[in-house]
Design a protein around this nucleic acid. Structure first.
Lengths: 243, 243
DNA sequence: GGTTGTATATTTATCATATAAATAAGCATT
DNA sequence: AATGCTTATTTATATGATAAATATACAACC
């Protein structure tokens, strides 16, 4: 297997390749993680490049290394799931409804509180971004904007308007997750149109400074998403069962 | 400045040193991040070691690099705050009440939901860990265990019992944050003793499978913590002002 | 027998040096 | 003023060598 450097440099492409390989679980007791020299051959790369790639994956909690013992895949509990790369690798290549459900549970916990904080905030500039997000969603309804991107922009704007730096990290993760969950929720037609109105309710409450209403409206929104994912999960399990 | 390799290897100690240096903001337009060769001299390390350290910090979102342009510190919004290392560097070396408040806000969002999920869970083994945490806290009241460690163990057990892999990542972050917030909340005596009873309420509700009560009890707990931090923050600001 | 020490081999860690690739900046040309 | 070319700087990559750590096997000892 050789890494094709598409766009980025060699180190980067090896990180992506190995990252995906690790999270998809191709290494195990039966097939242990290769030693440096072996990986160099495998990717046709020099030791320096390969070691730097391994170090980056180590920094994300995926790998560990010690002299004489070699390099190994860390237990999954050690992986930094909240690292955008790691989450993307998992969703892209080891898609599972359960992971999507678990991520939606995070959103269900965090986004209503973020909406509440945004409603309490006095940052007019950041709050204006939320309105822009809604405007884009409305435009998307007419086909004048991208539905997914405008949806993401709306949620991102609220997280950023919360004034909480940890929340402000989530848009990247959420955009990744949304790009995958949309594939399913889109199958279930007739929901997205009504959903714009529900989004607007959140926006209106935030603009009015109504903390409780903003929180409740957002909770409703995410709960709806979570239900959709769970429904798709159940349907998926059904399809599995029919085979 | 030279990196003293205490315990870990040279690369690791350079990562720690540089990580702290970056988050404390010692690099700026006025003092740009040094080029490779300069850093090698500074740390008395070879290029490979130094580059591997830089790559690890790049993986955590702290640095970026391009030929001819050099290496630079990424804008703070790019830092992976949810990386245990990054959070620790920030709290250890650039302590601020506001960061602690923001982290407590995350806890306020997440932990009640985790308690709810734990209450709904049927994993007896993981739920038993919650009880063990409470037992340790009670023991700590008598001086037979460490109050901080038992507190951390309790919250960690709930997050793990939630069955959500993202939540299960948080104990490490929370333990870091608690170790710092404890320094302040301990100054405010007379609170911790009553708090054990409040913790017990959460545990009881989870064991009884009472989802709503578990969520509410945990929310009360964290809100109390958040209030304490905010109180300390206000007192700190007062002290600042008196200077 | 079991424990403890020792030698050895394997693997990562570190160092040193060289070449390649990318690109910002200055310069020349049009 | 815009465009293309040259050059210098910096990271990216490659290679080879030595050091350090440590699992394993074996030997010595009680």
């Amino acid at each position: 297997m050789s890494a094709q450097p598409r766009g980025q440099n060699l180190t980067h492409s090896i990180v992506q390749n190995l990252g995906v390989a690790i999270v998809t679980g191709i290494y195990s007791v039966k097939k242990p993680f290769p030693v440096e020299a072996q990986l160099c051959k495998q990717y046709g790369a020099s030791r320096s490049v390969l070691r730097e790639a391994v170090k980056m994956l180590t920094a994300k909690g995926l790998l560990g290394a010690r002299p004489r013992q070699g390099t190994w895949v860390q237990p999954e509990s050690n992986w930094n799931l909240l690292d955008p790369d790691v989450l993307r690798w998992l969703l892209e290549r080891k898609f599972s409804y359960s992971l999507l459900v678990e991520f939606a549970q995070i959103r269900l916990a965090v986004e209503p509180k973020a909406a509440a904080l945004a409603a309490a905030s006095r940052d007019a500039v950041k709050k204006a971004e939320i309105q822009k997000g809604i405007d884009r969603m409305i435009a998307a309804e007419q086909g004048d904007d991208d539905p997914l991107e405008s949806d993401i922009a709306f949620h991102a704007a609220i997280l950023r308007a919360s004034g909480n730096r940890f929340y402000a990290q989530l848009p990247e993760l959420i955009s990744t997750a949304l790009r995958f969950s949309i594939r399913m929720t889109n199958r279930q037609k007739g929901v997205r149109l009504a959903s714009v109105a529900d989004h607007e309710k959140v926006c209106t409450a935030i603009m009015a400074g109504d903390i409780a209403k903003a929180e409740a409206a957002m909770e409703f929104l995410i709960q709806e998403t979570l239900d959709l994912i769970k429904k798709a999960q159940a349907a998926g399990a059904l399809r599995e069962g029919r085979r």
